[in-house]
Amino acid sequence: MTYDEARSLLETYTKSESLLRHAICVETAMRCYAKKFGEDEEKWAIVGLLHDFDYEKYPDEHPYRGAEILKEKGLDEDMIEAILGHANYTGVERKTLMAKTLFAVDELSGFLYAYALVRPTKNLKDIKLKSVKKKLKDKAFAKGVNREDIELGAKELGVDLGEHILFVAECLQNNAKAIGLEE
């Protein structure tokens, strides 16, 4: 599957602006980590883009229904496994670096996007880690974001949580226009 085919599939199943934006945020972070790790950027970007593509249409069957659709479309098994593994309740073990990275960036991307929106500048430039961590402790802020998954993701990926936060924030800021955080 090409990137353009993945983008078309996402847009066929997902109409919500916030879900589309989330897909682009996760795609962005996946692409950055792929580059950092010397992995296939397009492959990782596609996984990020499609990880929640079925959620709006099949919320009670997510990500199982999406995995079935992607299998029918011939997506690589390791990509499907990574998508299944991003949801803890599936019980699919995150064995590959790609799967661990998807899990590590999913919740964090959503949190950082919400964090950017409450900043006076509406962006992620020059953020202070201390400020982000303070917001992470505020359970009322971005309450849909699972903080335990953010911590577990960094641990499974084998990266320092602070470095992970700053790296993903920089990735998102570098793609600010595409994710709606224009300067």
Rank of each mutant, 00 (worst) to 15 (best):
P120L: 09
V26P: 03
Q173R: 12
K57E: 15
V26Q: 08
D160E: 06
I83D: 04
Y13E: 08
D160C: 02
T14K: 11
L161D: 07
A154P: 02
L157R: 06
E61Q: 15
L9P: 02
G85K: 01
K155T: 06
L97S: 00
E11W: 14
A114C: 13
D52R: 10
E68P: 09
A140F: 13
Y64W: 14
K133I: 00
K35R: 15
I24G: 08
E56G: 12
C25N: 11
R147W: 05
Y113W: 14
W44L: 03
G91R: 11
S8W: 11
L84Y: 09
F103P: 02
L49Y: 08
A104G: 01
Y13D: 05
S109R: 03
G144Q: 03
R65K: 15
E163F: 08
A45K: 00
Y115P: 01
S131Q: 15
L172F: 06
A140I: 11
E156S: 09
F103H: 05
G66M: 09
L136Y: 04
L49P: 06
A176H: 13
L152E: 12
E41S: 10
L161N: 01
I24F: 13
S16F: 11
P120H: 10
Y58Q: 02
L117Q: 14
N88E: 12
G180L: 06
I46P: 00
L161Q: 04
V105K: 10
R119C: 10
Y89A: 01
L161Y: 08
V168N: 06
S16V: 04
K135Y: 14
H164I: 00
N175S: 01
K137F: 03
Y3Q: 00
D54G: 04
D4Y: 13
H22E: 08
A154V: 07
K137T: 13
E11F: 15
P63H: 03
G74C: 04
V105G: 02
K143F: 13
W44P: 07
M1V: 08
K15E: 15
M1D: 01
A114W: 08
K122M: 04
K134W: 13
Y13Q: 02
T121L: 14
A140S: 13
C171G: 00
G91S: 09
T121M: 15
A176R: 15
K100W: 02
K36N: 10
H86E: 01
A114F: 10
T14Y: 12
V145F: 11
E156C: 02
V168T: 02
T121P: 05
I46K: 09
G180W: 06
A142S: 11
V26I: 07
E148M: 12
A87S: 13
A87V: 14
A34M: 00
G66I: 07
A116T: 00
Y113K: 03
H164E: 03
F141P: 03
F53K: 11
D60N: 13
T28P: 07
L136K: 05
V105C: 02
Y33L: 08
E77L: 07
E151T: 03
A67P: 00
E183N: 14
Q173M: 05
E27Q: 14
L10Q: 11
Y64K: 14
D160Y: 05
G38A: 07
A67H: 06
L112E: 05
K43D: 08
S131H: 15
K15D: 12
V159M: 14
C25F: 11
